[in-house]
Design a protein around this nucleic acid. Structure first.
Lengths: 182, 182
DNA sequence: CTCCATCCATACGGTGCCGTATGGAATGAG
DNA sequence: CTCATTCCATACGGCACCGTATGGATGGAG
């Protein structure tokens, strides 16, 4: 075992940054190498090709996303409502993860393999949401509808650009969230 | 005036198709020409460069989106609730327009000029939503929250991949929509 | 110190696309 | 028919990136 100057993880991290900034088409080897201050020589020692990097980027994203959800579960408690609030706040706080998440979601619309990964992650998150809503909602259909609505609110918020007069987007978001937690 | 074998609109339409299928990076001149069965020779007669095509594509999208909204308004009537239902159904029906819309939304996250256009379109749509919800909602904050929620539901739905057990996505969507129209 | 695994620089050929130049084909006006 | 306008084919130079090949550099194991 010798040293590891620019390990795999460096390439994956840089790739995820590029993905967040410009989508999958922006993940190019030579610019990545330049951003890391090296030449692309080492890249092809770590990875077979560009596709292999994309795969491992998605692996990392999937793992992080699930760990993240588990970390939410194991957070200090509270009832369903307060935990939902904390979840929503934390999900918006990690801006870097959020941007990766949004990029992957758009990517999934074009690539079935990515869509399958997204499905796994979203099913995990949906399970968690169902559990939290189930804490204070009796009807199962209601739980399902509210889970979809908070998910859509969280995602859709970042894909809409409308103004709200005197109110800020955060204000309206708060109003909407309050509706869903009623 | 001579003939117009492959007019501007052909290039714009083809560009919008490519945009819907693969995002802005997928709008390349030479593949577009091949798809149209011509060489790229004519393209550079119509347009200065690739950027000019992207601009005109966005012009067309913006115009269509607003006309589309106006067409909804001038549809045969009904109260706010039924018109909201019709709006939601029609917005999902035009799959080609929907895919362009989603692509533009992701694009807007990276390009401020696109974001400005999206803002114009979304403000128009938000105005319409406000008017419809105002038909049966007294509280103004409630109107604002519901408008954001239906918008987010419509968009977010296409960026989420979760399953819902026995229920189909359409079922849950119906449940969520019913909640918002209550 | 030696040696080997690890990582990097450089150079190369290949590909796909951009934008330009130039000559020509098609089409309606007169 | 004549002719100018409109559109297209082809060829070209340039650029950015991919993936490969090859020869090192670097640093820990022994």
């Amino acid at each position: 075992m010798a040293a590891t100057r620019t390990p795999r993880s460096s390439w994956i991290d840089a790739g995820l940054r590029a993905l967040a900034a410009g989508g999958p088409d922006a993940v190019r080897i030579e610019p990545l190498a330049q951003a890391l201050g090296v030449s692309k020589g080492g890249f092809y020692w770590h990875f077979d090709n560009r596709g292999a990097l994309l795969e491992e980027m998605l692996d990392a994203w999937e793992r992080i996303s699930i760990e993240e959800a588990i970390a939410q579960v194991e957070q200090e408690g509270g009832d369903g409502r307060t935990r939902l609030r904390r979840l929503f706040a934390l999900a918006s706080a990690r801006g870097d993860l959020l941007r990766i998440d949004l990029a992957v979601r758009d990517w999934a619309r074009r690539d079935p393999a990515v869509a399958a990964r997204l499905r796994r992650v979203d099913n995990r998150r949906a399970d968690y949401l169902r559990a939290l809503f189930g804490d204070f909602c009796a009807d199962e259909g209601d739980v399902e509808a509210r889970s979809l609505l908070v998910g859509a609110l969280w995602i859709g918020n970042h894909f809409m650009a409308a103004d709200h007069g005197a109110r800020s987007r955060a204000d309206v978001l708060e109003l909407a969230l309050r509706r869903l937690l009623a």
